[in-house]
Structures are given as structure tokens and as C-alpha cells.
Amino acid sequence: MELSGPAAVASLSRWLIGGLGARSVSIRRIDRLGGGAIQENYALDADVSGGTHAGAQKLVLRTDAPSGVAVSHSRAQEYALLQAAQAAGVTVPQPLALCSDKAIIGRPFYVMKRVAGTAAGHILVRDDRWKGDRVALADQLGRELAKIHTIRPPRGDLDFLPLPKQPPAREAISGYRAWLDTYRTPRPALEWGLRWLERHAPATADLVLSHRDFRTGNYMVDAQGLTGILDWEFAGWGDWHEDIGWFCSRCWRFGANTREAGGIGSRSDFIAGYEKRSGRRVDAEQVRYWETMAHARWATIAIQQGERHVSGSEPSLDLALTGRRVAELEYQLLRMTGS
């Protein structure tokens, strides 16, 4: 079902009356938003009468893309994560209503408030209009991550998240190897990196909710600063250093390599924000380990994304170019694992 078609719009309007607890809902605009290889996002403007959301509402509707990555959560699970994050005080777009009924628009979806700004990494690291105060932004992102990490197992509302059966680093390595065993071409450079990661894997971990894609490109910023942490589809119980390593890793700096915190700020400002809010002391060696893991993980995902193009199932220039990023990821992974 096309979301812009009149039948879908009428069906969605009727559903939103119940979802938002309104008397009436009139949709003025639905536009597909860019980005999202795994989910589709639509900007939705609606006039709402009655209820706690009365007024002109700027919303986002998030639903599945035709071909998703197997490891990502369902929309219902992502909605539960968003609610848990909001309850923990994390700056997120306010989740408003979840629809698991495929009869409404053909796919499950949820609706959240639309936050202002841009998430585009290549803009955030280069364009001064969006930088706000880079020190404050790095500090705030550190604090936000610390708030996410206050969510800890066990949690009834998040019981769909499996607990790791072995230390998280070892579980990750096993997962990447299992996938590589199914892939048609051996990847010795990636295998070298995984072996190094296995030899240096931390034996234990203090488990927290790891966002697992906490990086520039997945949060919104306007001229004043942070407006929302997005993209919760990979979150799971993990080692709290993992998100710090992913955020600081060279492969997520969008070319702004001297600003080690996501290409937007200094590592020390980001870590200081995290330490102040969490009360933890961040071990630089452990972060370095997870930065190395970040390269192995992103290389594996990039092969998978490229394969969606190469297999012919989803011809796409974007996916094709992502597939070719494997080279730089393997090269940096090797540089980090020489001894």
C-alpha cells in the first residue's frame, strides 16, 4: 500500500483518532524522509482536535522498508525501547502510538513527535550552521549515553532482548564468524581482525542497554544543540564500553578525523560528559578495544549492505558504494591489530 494514496491516508487518519485519543484527525501532508536503508520514515503533518495532543502536530511515522536487515528489531520492539529511553530521561522523539495491525497501512508502524534539525553526518561535521557549541554537544552526547546505560537487565518491558550467553565481545565475534561462514568469499583481513579481537576480548562485562548504533548520523541537532537520539533498532544488552567505542571510532567521523568524538567534538569532552553523568571511570584501553570491534562490525555490515546490491535483490548505488567501504574498514582494522 502506498502511504500517499487516498485510501491509506483515510485509513491512517481514522486510526490516529484512537491512537492519539483525539476527536478528529486531519492529515495535511505525508512525505517520505531520506535515509533509512532498513526502515522508512515519513514526515506527517496533522491537525488534531480533542485530547492531549490537540493542535497542529508535526509527526514522524516509522515503518519497515521492503527489505530489512535480519538482526534489527520489529517496530513494536523499537517502540518499547523508545519508551524505555524516554522514561530514563534520554532526549528522544516522544513516542505517541504504535500500530501492529497490518490492515491500516499494510505494515506495522509507530508515530512519534518530529524533532527539529538535521541528522546528516556529512553536514554536522562540516557546516558551522549546525555545530551549536561543539564542546557542549560532545558533553551532552556523553551524558545522553550515560542515561541510556542506566537501563539495565532484567526488564519486563524489554524481555524480547536476549541476554548474552557469553561475554558480549565473544558473542559478537562468534556472530560475525558465523555469518562469514555463509558468505561466498573468504575475508582474511577481517578474519585477522576478529582473531585479534578474540585474543584481547574482555572476560566479563557490566551489562547495560547498549544502543548499538550511537553515532553521528543517528541523532538530530539544530543550531542550539541536540534535539533527539534516533534509530534504536539494534539496541541490546551489552558492554557499556561498546557504545563509547562505536561513537569515537574513526569510521564514524565522516572524514573529520581530528575530532575523535563522532567528528563533532573532542574525545575528552564526550568522555567527561559520560563520566559525570554515569559516575563510571572510562578505561581508554577498553574503549580502544571496542573501536577496533567497531571496524570489524561495520566491515561485516558493509559487506552485507553491498551484497543486497550485488545479489540483484535491491540494485542501489548507495548500497553498492557502502559495499566498497569494506576496503578502508579492513585496512584500518589491520592497522589497529598489528600486534
Binding site: 582474511p188 578502508e328 589491520l334
Partner: peptide
């Protein structure tokens, strides 16, 4: 290790020489 590094570097010089 050195052979893997040289081979990965050659590929990276094609796909993203700036990195």
C-alpha cells in the same frame, strides 16, 4: 600480516584514498 595490510591498502586506495 604485512601481505594482508598491503592488499587492503591497495583496495582502500581505490575506494577511499583520502582515508
Amino acid at each position: 600480516y604485512e601481505a594482508l595490510l598491503a592488499e587492503a591498502k591497495a583496495r582502500a586506495l581505490i575506494s577511499n584514498p583520502k582515508d
